[in-house]
């Protein structure tokens, strides 16, 4: 694709950065993904909602290569990545956060971010001549932590941080990887209400062409963030549409019986 074409495609928002084709996965009798089709164009802001156990986290695991699908295919910028190991997908810009904090507990917050930056800059292999490169990673990490409101905690070990701050760190690491596609698995779960603002602002500061898929049970956050919402039930895409369409969809209400949608 030539530059001009690429720009053209981008302005149209036509070429999906990430495409999912017929993805299927079962654990024995339990189907967690059934023939899922989804396109994330550049700049997408998609909310993925669904009841507990719908298969949302499994979907992210399938996309990132943590789980092997039974059938179907994932394309990142038009190239099938099904055979790529998880870490190589990350290197191509497919980045996730975890629903349950997955951090280096015995390492200071600053270094958690800095080693992610080092991998992004491909200097994770350096053994001997790393002084300036590593210092640059630390400086960037410090700036990123400050932006997340974690500036004062940067030298504390992760295990000493309260859960909410660990959540923010999880997101700061993902952003530090400068993703092309960002998959957020319940980023706000466990973050005190006052601090979700930082998440929202940080996501707003991302380059506009980054595609984001956010799983979230906090409907306020989803409706504020997403331009399109996908509803998943029992491994299947039940419906999709704009936030207002979803808010008024009877089937969605039925699924969320007892749960307030807007």
């Amino acid at each position: 694709m030539s530059d001009a074409e690429a720009r053209h495609a981008n302005t149209l928002g036509a070429a999906p950065v990430l495409s999912v084709r017929g993805l299927c996965k079962s654990f024995g009798a339990l189907t967690v993904a059934q023939d899922i089709e989804l396109d994330l164009p550049g700049g997408a802001r998609i909310g993925l909602i669904g009841p507990n156990g719908a298969g949302k986290t499994s979907f992210v695991n399938l996309l990132t290569g943590m789980l092997r699908p039974d059938a179907g295919s994932v394309l990142l910028e038009d190239r099938a990545i099904d055979r790529l190991r998880p870490e190589l997908r990350v290197r191509r810009g497919l980045v996730r956060t975890h629903q349950i904090n997955t951090l280096l507990a015995e390492t200071p917050a600053l270094e958690n971010v800095a080693i992610a930056i080092a991998e992004r800059k491909r200097i994770g292999w350096r053994m001997l001549r790393y002084g300036t490169g590593w210092r640059a990673c630390l400086d960037e990490a410090e700036a990123r932590l400050a932006a997340m409101g974690l500036g004062d905690d940067r030298l504390r070990l992760v295990r000493e941080l309260p859960y909410g701050k660990q959540r923010l760190l999880e997101i700061a690491i993902a952003l530090a990887l400068k993703p092309r596609v960002l998959l957020l698995d319940e980023p706000a779960a466990g973050v005190p209400a006052g601090e979700t603002r930082a998440i929202h602002e940080q996501l707003g500061d991302l380059p506009q062409d980054v595609a984001i898929l956010m799983i979230e049970h906090d409907m306020d956050l989803v409706f504020r963030f997403a331009r399109e919402i996908v509803v998943m039930v029992q491994g299947r895409v039940l419906t999709r549409g704009s936030p207002s369409e979803i808010a008024n969809d009877d089937r969605v209400r039925e699924v969320y019986l007892g749960r307030r949608v807007r």
């Binding site: 943590m66 870490e87 190589l88 990350v90 996730r96 280096l104 507990a105 390492t107 080693i115 690491i173």
Partner: peptide, 16 residues
Amino acid sequence: DGIRQNVRRMRAIGTP
């Protein structure tokens, strides 16, 4: 050091 502590984390930042 990270691999010892949490392999999943290291995979998630793209560490081979």
